[in-house]
């Protein structure tokens, strides 16, 4: 049963990912991307990583994709305005992307019995994640607040209007 679910989700995610690249209309691309994200979230559920699956749906399919749609609709993209890349660039991109793919696939060889998988199969459950986050990884968790704060300060600073220069 799980295996069939895996193959189905894998098929859907690859198909949708290809459609993201090949569809002409950018809105369709974004919608296919949402589907891709949902199917990947399904894979996370199969891996017993419930927290990751929920966060993935909320953040990626929810927030980020809505942002994408807004930007696309505001920009009003159409095919004429799309910049055309030269053939050489496309050729080079395909070759290097293909090489990266080969490396990634090859590196998965023999990864069925890795140390990580045997360590704790329950690691993805929300309760376990919380325990690790507040014990072992307390410092990175706290330091992330500085990361978020600086991003927030930066966003405010860049969007704030300059005061008129005082004479």
């Amino acid at each position: 049963m799980t295996q069939y679910a895996f193959y189905f989700l894998a098929f859907v995610s690859i198909l949708c990912a290809l459609m993201v690249v090949f569809s002409k209309n950018p809105i369709h691309s974004v919608l296919y991307l949402v589907l891709t994200f949902f199917s990947i979230a399904g894979q996370y559920l199969l891996l017993n990583a419930q927290f990751l699956a929920v966060v993935h749906i909320v953040v990626y399919s929810g927030a980020i994709m809505v942002l994408f749609l807004f930007v696309l609709m505001l920009l009003n993209l159409n095919t004429e305005a799309e910049p055309q890349k030269s053939t050489w660039l496309k050729f080079a991109a395909v070759i290097s992307g293909g090489l990266l793919l080969i490396t990634f696939v090859a590196s998965l060889k023999g990864s069925e019995n890795m140390a990580l998988v045997q360590k704790n199969p329950e690691i993805g459950l929300t309760a376990n994640l919380g325990k690790i986050l507040f014990n072992e990884f307390a410092l990175p968790f706290e330091i992330s607040s500085i990361l978020l704060l600086s991003a927030m300060v930066g966003a405010v600073m860049l969007s704030q209007k300059e005061k008129e220069a005082k004479q």
Binding site: F137, L139, P140, I143, S144, I146, L147, S150, A151, V153, G154, M157, L158, E162
Partner: peptide, 24 residues
């Protein structure tokens, strides 16, 4: 720990992205 490395790089980078564009 590599999580600290990653968070450090991100804090530094995000501040630099904003500062690089600070001359609005």
């Amino acid at each position: 720990n590599m999580t600290m490395l990653f968070i450090g790089i991100e804090i530094l980078s995000i501040c630099m992205y904003v500062l690089a564009g600070s001359n609005k």
